[in-house]
Nucleic acid binder design. Structure first.
Lengths: 329, 329
DNA sequence: ATGCCAACATGAAACGTTTCATTTTTTGAA
DNA sequence: TTCAAAAAATGAAACGTTTCATGTTGGCAT
């Protein structure tokens, strides 16, 4: 149905090779160029990237695999990665594995079949072997989380450091009963953020109280539930550090329901999503990840590798920031 | 490098045709099936979807074109569309045109080259001709906004109706100076939401005041700015209807800065993103679009059409809901 | 005019599948 | 056992490109 290179060749009386050369930016005699351009217009010719990809074994396509799509972090990541990649002619196929490692595996396999040229993955942490294999075959960039014994490019943030800073700030302001709500234990992010917490406590020669250390998944409901548990303790915490956006929302909701005020009754340090926090009246601080930069860097690492630059695996660690309420424009 | 069907054929001593038949679910003699499966394992064979697509002229790929990626509405749309589509074996290529109609055109063309089997588009409204053309060639589903003289499937919400309901509620509560902050004038959503506003006023035989009717783009900053302008009026509104999520955020921020309380000093009805609003302490109501359903329906319309079902263009209008604060679980 | 060289054009083969008309094998009823 | 019909396998052609070794041209110096 659609016009092909052959039709252009026929109509111009030129050969396939010439048309192909023109389409790929090669030199072509002036009068031929005009003819070709005319034919392309008239036939509304679009090159078939499937055929091209088959021949060149490059699909010019990147697979992005993420645990959640309706999630502030992931959407920012995608947004900026897509922007960078499309400037280099790559399209993005998006795969949402809904936190299900089995689906994650399927998606990896699916994208392999689709001949993507590379991957950007926010891994579940339970598909280590599959991703290790993958790295051997194709360029892969991990984002947010590292995997044990997987050597590949990655973009992460200084989790331990920023967490230390958060807790130190709280300690300096006199807090002693400080709770932290982490993500799932198996994730490096969760463990690192906890490390920072513990380091701060030991630096100030304080004893960390295990009942204030909670693991969860990264959902609003967990934040809500765990916050409730914390508030119900005989001696509840005076400060809570919520380590992602959804947990933060859950905590706020629970605190509101309990009729407590922030920061008068409870201090809170939250995570992510600046626009949201700018709008709240309660006074609390948040940790912001440079999500745009993370997306962009991930894309950049990938493009570099696709272009054959960079040999050894590079892990880029970006700096998260502790933003005090109203210190933001 | 990677194993192909040929390698499988060679290793099993069978012919290409047989392998292909097996891969496509055809019947194959038991002992051959075993051999084939063994060879596939051993060679780590993955079918090359590029080659398959070239031959079948079906890429099993859908293009989703949206104005913004880091946007709650679009993310939800994508999320649910992807979920539905992937159940039917379709992958999703995502294109963000950053509200730039020129980029939108390029993306349409790019995806055409990539041989996508269909499109889901949230159009800018300024590429009517291109999209009309496109509809003639491929299945297209429009989401959120319709286009003049473009006959194709679409999923929208009852904008006028819900807007009427919002304004009527406000009027019944005694408000007379009611402001509405719409999106860009050229968009059907903005115009329809205004229509509902005007209808409510005329039903109650009230005169609509043009200074309370504002158009903007759909960004937080505009909400912020326009809210400021409204508050600075000699007789400012007593209620504001913000017609999308980001505008709502902007309004809240401006209102907070002005030291006004909601709803004591100003009533506000906002839009979208339930989780966020559940967390606020101020009392106000919001309009929620059934985003999940929109994404799913869009995907469903598309799949139906790809399967040759459904002849005439179908426009599905879903119901947005007015949710009163605390009436939500 | 002649010959040469660079610049461009040509056309067949290849990429990894599917398809389909043919041929081969299997099955089971007589 | 035989044979026809059913079931399965075969292999060549095709999908729309790119590539590359070979052929053809035009322009320039002699």
């Amino acid at each position: 149905m659609a016009a092909t290179i052959k039709d252009i060749a026929q109509r111009t009386g030129l050969s396939l090779g010439t048309i192909s050369k023109y389409l790929n930016g090669g030199k072509v005699r002036e009068k031929n160029r005009l003819q070709i351009e005319k034919a392309i217009k008239e036939l509304d010719f679009h090159i078939n990237e499937l055929a091209r990809g088959l021949k060149t074994s490059q699909s010019k396509t990147i697979g992005i695999i993420i645990p959640l799509l309706d999630n502030y972090f992931c959407m920012n990541l995608m947004s900026y990665a897509e922007k960078y990649l499309s400037a280099f002619g790559y399209s993005v196929i998006v795969c949402n594995y809904r936190e299900d490692p089995e689906v994650e595996k399927e998606k990896i396999s699916l994208l392999t079949q689709r001949q993507v040229d590379g991957f950007i993955i926010v891994p579940s942490g339970e598909t280590v072997d599959e991703i290790r294999d993958l790295c051997g075959r194709l360029p892969v960039v991990l984002v947010d989380r590292l995997l044990p014994d997987v050597e590949c490019d990655a973009v992460v943030i200084n989790n331990a450091e920023i967490s230390f800073q958060v807790v130190e700030t709280l300690i300096k302001r006199g807090h002693r009963r400080i709770a932290i709500i982490c993500g799932p234990k198996r994730m490096t992010t969760a463990r690192e953020r906890l490390d920072g917490y513990l380091t701060a406590f030991s630096k100030y020669r304080l004893e960390a109280d295990r009942q204030f250390i909670r693991f969860s998944d990264y959902y609003l409901e967990s934040g809500y539930r765990i916050c409730g548990e914390l508030l119900d303790l005989p001696l509840p915490p005076t400060a809570i550090f919520a380590t992602n956006y959804d947990i933060t929302l859950g905590v706020i909701r629970r605190v509101n329901e309990a009729g407590l005020r922030i920061p008068e009754d409870l201090s809170l340090i939250g995570f992510d999503n600046l626009p949201f926090f700018q709008v709240l009246t309660s006074e609390f601080s948040i940790v912001t990840q440079p999500m745009e930069e993370m997306g962009e860097k991930a894309a950049q690492l990938l493009v570099d590798r696709l272009n054959g630059r960079s040999a050894a695996a590079r892990v880029i660690s970006l700096k998260a920031e502790l933003v005090m309420k109203h210190s933001v424009s």
